[in-house]
Write a protein that binds this DNA or RNA. Sequence first.
DNA 1: CACGATTAAGTTGTGCACAACTTAATCGTG
DNA 2: CACGATTAAGTTGTGCACAACTTAATCGTG
Lengths: 163, 163
Amino acid sequence: MRVSRILGSMDEDFLRLDNQICFSLHAATRAFNGVYRGALKELGLTYPQYLVMLVLWEHGELPVKGIGERLRLDSGTLSPLLKRLEAAGYVERRRSPEDERSVTVRLTGDGTALREKALGVPRRIAAATGLDLAELGELRERLHALAARLDGVDPDDVTAACG
Amino acid sequence: MRVSRILGSMDEDFLRLDNQICFSLHAATRAFNGVYRGALKELGLTYPQYLVMLVLWEHGELPVKGIGERLRLDSGTLSPLLKRLEAAGYVERRRSPEDERSVTVRLTGDGTALREKALGVPRRIAAATGLDLAELGELRERLHALAARLDGVDPDDVTAACG
DNA sequence: CACGATTAAGTTGTGCACAACTTAATCGTG
DNA sequence: CACGATTAAGTTGTGCACAACTTAATCGTG
């Protein structure tokens, strides 16, 4: 079978490999999510909420749009998420006085204080991966490049055949 | 700042890097999902539905549990997904006669025929990544190893401090 | 300046992921 | 064999991701 490989079987080979990389990615993301779930339970945050808090810890206050640009999320995802963070007492949302369309998200005292409790999280996660800093950095770089390339793809081009 | 790095700032460094790898993973998965969405639109499948179909195209018929083991999904995710595939006419679900607890999922004629239309999908996705087979294979291997390691982590261990 | 175009948030609806639970069947040990 | 334990699906409820849409404010060009 391997010897008499013909052109027509290429698609089946591609399918197998490609399937596995996408599946691996899917599985790795869910596995990471599971580990984060454990680490973030005591903070009362989900993983996406944690990402938003990271952005706010770094930038202090940001409009919803700014958070969305940094995390590649739209208002359909962020609006309810931010309301939950507000209900939890970690952020405040206020309409911007300069531009009434914009809503500024700001850390509360509790939200700022939460950073201390979150400080230990990444080290635990990194330890759980069993990879050292260099390996993590390399993998991150690859994934970043991959995502950037995929984000630049016109969806309609994927439906067309590729030479 | 880089020169006078002290132990206490390690967590902040870790946080930055680790944040980025998890975020990269998150972003890459969503980017992949977006590309698949385009490619699978004409088949009328979502990406998780496509994964289930791949498993069935390979194994013919399987109990729900068997599908769940291969894709690491539980019945809470699979039951409604399989009902949607059944409503679309691609699979049949039947209680197993040997074990009335088990439900066997089987491809219909339409479901089997759909494979032909799906055959070109992976090549398009692979092309969109801009990586060659060797690079895709290596990345897949890394992600697979990472997921396996993370799946083996006891959630309660992550909440505890790591030496 | 007026008015169509654009922009920022938010809403609605669908589907996935998962925790916690229920139901029904089967297993296994005394 | 009987009965508690286990197993397989399914249900319920929460949260995220995203498409398609609405609402309200601002922009920009004639």
